[in-house]
C-alpha cells in the first residue's frame, strides 16, 4: 500500500475508534444520491448516477447477434466498464484493468442473476437474437464505484426502449415500447477497516480500506455478493450486512 493511503487509513481508524467518519456520516449512511435519466439520446437507455463525488454514466445499446451455443434460445447481455483517464489521475488509458473488469463483472452478476431482464424475450428467429450491451463509464471517481455503477445501470435499464426489428435487422429510428424489467437490483458496498464496516466508502475510505463486501439485492433476494481486498469477513458480519443491504437497498430502489 502506498504510504499516503496508509496514513489515511490510520486517520480513518483513529476517527472510527470514536465512531466518526471524515465527512460526518454515520457508518451505515449513503452520501447524497442523484440520478439523471436519458442523458444520451443515441443510446436505447441511459442514466447518469452520482453518489457523493462519484459519477458514472450507464448506456445501453441493442444489436443483433448469434446466441451462445449453450443458450440457443436466449438473448445476449454483456457489460463493460471503462475507468477513463478523465475520471481520476489514477486511471490510465488502455484496455480495462483488473478493477474495471471486476466492476463490470459484479454489476453484470447482480443484473443477470436477478433475472430482471427476460433474455428469452430477446429471441428474433432460430439463428438470431437481440444483444443488449451495457456500457459503464466512470467519469468522476470519488469512491464506491460498484454501487454508483449498479444504480446507473438499473436507472438506464428502466428507461430502455425495445427497438423495432424487421427481417432480423434493427430499425434504429423506431421502438416498440419499454424493455420489460422485473425486480430492481441495487448494490450496497461496505468497506472494512479493522472490525468496522463503512457503507458507501468515499474516496479515502476506498483507497485505505482492508477489504470490501458488496451485496446486490432485489426486494426479497440476495442476487450477488463480492468480497474483495485482503480482509476477511465472517458469518455474523455477513448476517448483519445482508440485513443492512436490504434496508439501504430499499431506499435506493425508491429513488428509481
Amino acid at each position: 500500500m502506498e504510504i499516503l493511503n496508509e496514513l489515511k487509513r490510520d486517520t480513518i481508524m483513529r476517527m472510527l475508534a470514536e465512531g466518526k467518519r471524515a465527512d460526518g456520516r454515520k457508518l451505515d449512511e449513503f452520501r447524497t444520491v442523484r440520478i439523471q435519466k436519458n442523458v444520451l439520446p443515441n443510446a436505447e437507455g441511459s442514466a447518469l448516477c452520482q453518489i457523493g463525488k462519484t459519477q458514472v454514466i450507464a448506456g445501453l445499446k441493442f444489436d443483433v447477434a448469434t446466441p451462445y451455443a449453450d443458450r440457443p434460445d436466449e438473448g445476449v447481455f454483456s457489460t463493460g466498464a471503462e475507468l477513463v483517464p478523465l475520471g481520476s489521475h489514477m486511471f490510465e488509458p488502455g484496455p480495462p484493468n483488473e478493477d474495471a473488469i471486476e466492476l463490470a463483472r459484479v454489476v453484470d452478476r447482480g443484473i443477470r442473476s436477478s433475472e430482471t431482464i427476460d433474455l428469452k424475450s430477446f429471441a428474433i428467429n432460430d439463428e438470431k437474437v437481440l444483444a443488449l450491451y451495457l456500457d459503464l463509464w466512470v467519469i468522476d471517481y470519488g469512491g464506491n464505484l460498484i454501487d454508483t455503477a449498479a444504480l446507473a445501470a438499473m436507472a438506464a435499464l428502466l428507461q430502455t426502449k425495445m427497438p423495432k426489428v424487421e427481417d432480423a435487422k434493427i430499425i434504429r429510428s423506431e421502438d416498440v415500447g419499454n424493455l420489460k424489467i422485473g425486480e430492481k437490483v441495487v448494490a450496497c458496498s461496505f468497506s472494512k477497516f479493522g472490525t468496522h464496516y463503512l457503507l458507501d466508502p468515499a474516496l479515502d475510505e476506498d483507497l485505505g480500506m482492508d477489504g470490501k463486501v458488496t451485496i446486490s439485492t432485489t426486494s426479497k433476494h440476495v442476487c450477488a455478493v463480492q468480497k474483495s481486498g485482503w480482509a476477511s469477513t465472517n458469518e455474523k458480519d455477513v448476517s448483519d450486512l445482508v440485513d443492512l443491504a436490504f434496508e439501504r437497498g430499499n431506499q435506493l430502489r425508491s429513488l428509481l
Partner: peptide
C-alpha cells in the same frame, strides 16, 4: 472460520445464504 473468498450469484433469501 473467517471467510477469505466470498462470492455469490443467483437468487437466495438471507436464510439460504446463512
Amino acid at each position: 472460520g473467517d471467510m477469505l473468498l466470498f462470492q455469490m450469484d443467483g437468487l437466495l433469501t438471507k436464510d439460504e445464504v446463512m
